[in-house]
Design a protein around this nucleic acid. Structure first.
Length: 746
DNA sequence: GAGCCACCCGTTTTT
DNA sequence: CGGGTGGCTC
């Protein structure tokens, strides 16, 4: 009786700040639950309170709860907040990303499927290295078969749980035949290297559970409750894992929004959410449609775009907030003008409202767009922080040091070993490696074993043998030192002894200095890791390093404008958001504009971006953009046209004198942007446009603004994508897109 | 085996 | 613009 009173008191406390729909979703703890939660409707809040409720009211021990989040950062934030809601220790909840949670389970159980628990985890770059090696061995030319394309094919197959055998059966062309061969060999070698790639962290648990029912039963028993955030972005492998693990207790709560599914390209299957009710017929569905984040104008604008998608679960978000400011649409001359305009707007926002730098997010479709914006922010002394881009742990020098650590941890990891056998240079080149490789095959031993037996290999000079023996000794020394030294001490002495720092110091260039600093930064990252981890081991550090997400590295405590891709922005919110580069070809990206499914994903990406904004949303596009050496003229994004005009105000900065001078004005005919709002009054501010000449033929003489006069030599493609090869008198042969080249027939 | 140069490429999003 | 590669020379 007493406990009941306390429980209901606790329940009331946990539920008091939730709306009725959220409360329902929280207290319905038994059986499968689907929570369809629109943007900003408090889905993370619901998950958090549900976990607190399970612990406090249902008296579930924390370690029997499994909760999947999209980033590790989300997991640790949630853990903290659960602690404050429930005042209980939340540390033992199994909470994190799919990848890190199953890496943890695999470390414990992988001997059952023939792995050693110190397996390495390969990122995309390691995978490509391995694929290149295999292609080399199988004599597959890298000209027609691009290793990176092979990697993405293999990854795709693994995500959909297609085995190499199945893949080979369905191969339909030369490329796929090759991929099939490589895939088979790739899987075999990963095992020999005692390595798993990202996709194996999801695929191998399924194999493990499939072939070891007693292990599966143990985990099924263990996890009384399973909760999944961002369920719309799970792939088939993740779906299978969830289904396996939830079979016994059937207490699975998934939260998602089909409108925010933006990872189909890496195997996420939107049907996982659409079919949940079919897979779990007894499931209860809750809808959260009240938005607490954005103003009405922002919501309506976002909705007017996403509603153009077919086959979505219709829902209408509503808010009690006032309509707020209209969405501001800015059409700029070029990317520099766009960046300038963003700076001006940030300054205006400071003047008109009380803002901090950290109130702003600038979002873009591709990482490459950040550079120009960065430059302008820097020039104006606006502090900014970039999320993603080239990641710290993917920098060459950092990966090199990591490779040392990996080979110390896992001597079978030949990919890492080959990476550093000649770094810093110790005179061991391709020819020697080849000889060792042959020896490896003959004796059926690992590459590292072969190095230890270098004296037995013929055709290698004595001096090289000496150098290899030295190298081996160093590695072996640190392997035995592993348990005696802390990781930071070990790495420090290793980096010193091997001469990595000296190597960069001697070079003396600016790049070498920045590499030097990055290695130092890695050292301090290790120290920091050791401080905050209970029992820091080399293996756990290496694992964390490969499984960090971009957002995990985002330090949002400082006061700075945040720059990131639209993908990275998922799940976040900011008072003021800029979505930049709203041009056909860039957003939506041209290669995704043709297939409906891909176009719809781009549209959802726009929706995700727009709904990050709490008070003010700016959209910007530019008239032209540089890619490498070429300038492309662009038409405004179709998404701009899709926004209901009543929620929008327009700004068309007149081109400045310098912009006018920068290039003679011209643009192509198509593009409904001008029909949309600019047709009448202001289009005259642009000079008369010359029509793009499409009627080209081989042998014609043409004029190009920068390249001068030339002769058409070849034409390929048609319509939009027509490309011509032109032999220019001044600069020789160039291949150009007719659409952008602005050629004149002479 | 290493260093240098010239060209060529492509350039989406990420665990 | 920048990274990566392939070919050349020392």
């Amino acid at each position: 009786m007493g406990t009941q009173v306390t429980s209901s008191k606790k329940a009331a406390q946990i539920l008091k700040n939730l709306n009725p729909a959220q409360q329902q979703a929280v207290i319905w703890t038994e059986g499968p639950v689907l929570i369809l939660a629109g943007a900003g409707s408090g889905k993370t809040r619901v998950l958090m309170h549900k976990i607190a409720y399970l612990i406090e009211v249902n008296k579930i021990v924390p370690w029997k709860i499994l909760a999947m989040t999209f980033t590790n950062k989300a997991a640790s934030e949630m853990r903290e907040r659960i602690k404050t809601i429930s005042h209980q220790n939340s540390n033992t909840i199994w909470m994190g990303t799919f990848h890190s949670l199953f890496a943890r389970i695999l470390r414990k159980e992988c001997t059952a499927i023939g792995y050693q628990s110190n397996f390495s985890i390969y990122d995309a770059d390691d995978q490509v290295q391995l694929i290149k090696m295999i292609m080399n061995d199988l004599n597959i030319p890298t000209k027609n078969v691009i290793p990176k394309a092979v990697q993405s094919q293999i990854s795709r197959s693994k995500n959909s749980l297609t085995s190499p055998e199945q893949y080979r059966q369905h191969a339909e062309n030369m490329f796929e035949d090759y991929v099939g061969q490589i895939y088979t060999e790739y899987q075999k070698r990963l095992r020999n290297l005692n390595a798993m790639d990202f996709d194996d962290l999801l695929g191998n648990p399924i194999e493990l559970f499939g072939s070891n029912p007693e292990i599966l039963a143990r985990y099924q028993e263990r996890f009384d409750y399973i909760l999944v955030d961002e369920y719309q972005d799970t792939n088939h492998a993740q779906y299978r894992i969830l289904k396996l693990l939830s079979q016994q207790h059937r207490n699975i709560t998934v939260v998602g929004d089909d409108d925010q599914s933006i990872y189909a390209w890496r195997g996420a299957d939107i049907n996982n959410i659409l079919d949940f009710e079919k897979d779990f017929p007894e499931c209860r569905t809750f809808r959260l449609e009240q938005n607490y984040r954005s103003t009405q104008n922002i919501l309506s604008a976002a909705h007017s775009v996403v509603k153009n998608n077919q086959g979505r679960l219709e829902k209408t978000l509503w808010t009690t907030q006032e309509s707020g400011e209209k969405v501001t649409l800015i059409h700029c001359w070029d990317a520099f003008g766009e960046a300038d305009k963003i700076v001006t707007k940030i300054q205006d926002e400071f003047r008109l409202h009380q803002r901090n730098f950290k109130d702003f997010a600038i979002l873009y479709r591709t990482n490459a767009q950040s550079r120009i914006i960065e430059d302008r922010l820097r020039n104006h002394g606006i502090p900014y922080i970039i999320v993603g881009g080239t990641r710290f742990y993917e920098r060459k020098e950092v990966k090199d040091v990591i490779a040392y650590l990996r080979i110390i941890d896992n001597p079978l990891d030949t990919i890492s070993l080959k990476r550093i056998i000649n770094f810093p240079q110790r005179g061991i080149g391709a020819a020697t490696i080849k000889k060792i490789d042959i020896f490896t095959l003959e004796k059926r031993i690992s590459f590292f074993e072969a190095l230890k037996k270098i004296s037995m290999i013929e055709g290698v000079t004595e001096s090289i043998k000496m150098r290899i023996a030295n190298f081996c000794q160093i590695i072996e020394k640190y392997q035995s030192l592993q348990d005696k030294l802390s990781i930071s001490e070990m790495t420090r002495t290793l980096v010193e002894e091997v001469g990595i720092l000296a190597n960069f110091k001697n070079e003396g260039t600016v790049e070498a200095m920045s590499r030097y600093e990055n290695v130092f930064e890695l050292l301090s990252a290790i120290t920091e890791f050791s401080k905050r981890t209970e029992k820091p081991t080399l293996a756990t550090f290496l694992e964390e390093v490969t499984l960090v997400t971009d957002i995990d590295n985002w330090d949002n405590r400082g006061n700075a404008v945040t720059l990131m891709t639209l993908h990275s922005a998922k799940g976040l919110e900011f008072p003021v958001v800029f979505i930049t580069g709203l041009e056909e070809g860039l957003f939506p990206l041209s290669r995704n504009a043709e297939k409906t499914s891909q176009l719809e994903e781009e549209r959802r990406l726009f929706y995700v971006g727009a709904t990050r904004a709490k008070q003010k949303l700016y959209l910007s596009s530019a008239n032209r953009r540089n890619y490498g050496t070429e300038t492309f003229l662009s038409n405004p994004s179709r998404f701009i046209n899709e926004i209901d005009q009543q929620f929008v105000e327009l700004e068309f900065p007149k081109p400045t004198e310098s912009e006018r001078r920068r290039e003679k004005i011209s643009h192509s005919e198509e593009g409904s942007y001008y029909d949309y709002h600019y047709h009448t009054e202001t289009s005259s501010q642009y000079e008369e446009t010359l029509p793009v000449l499409q009627i080209l033929d081989i042998g014609m003489r043409v004029f190009h603004e920068t390249f001068g006069n030339g002769t058409v030599q070849d034409i390929e493609g048609r319509g939009e994508n027509t490309k011509v090869t032109i032999n220019f008198e001044a600069v020789g042969r160039k291949k150009l897109m007719v659409k952008y080249a602005n050629l004149e027939i002479i």
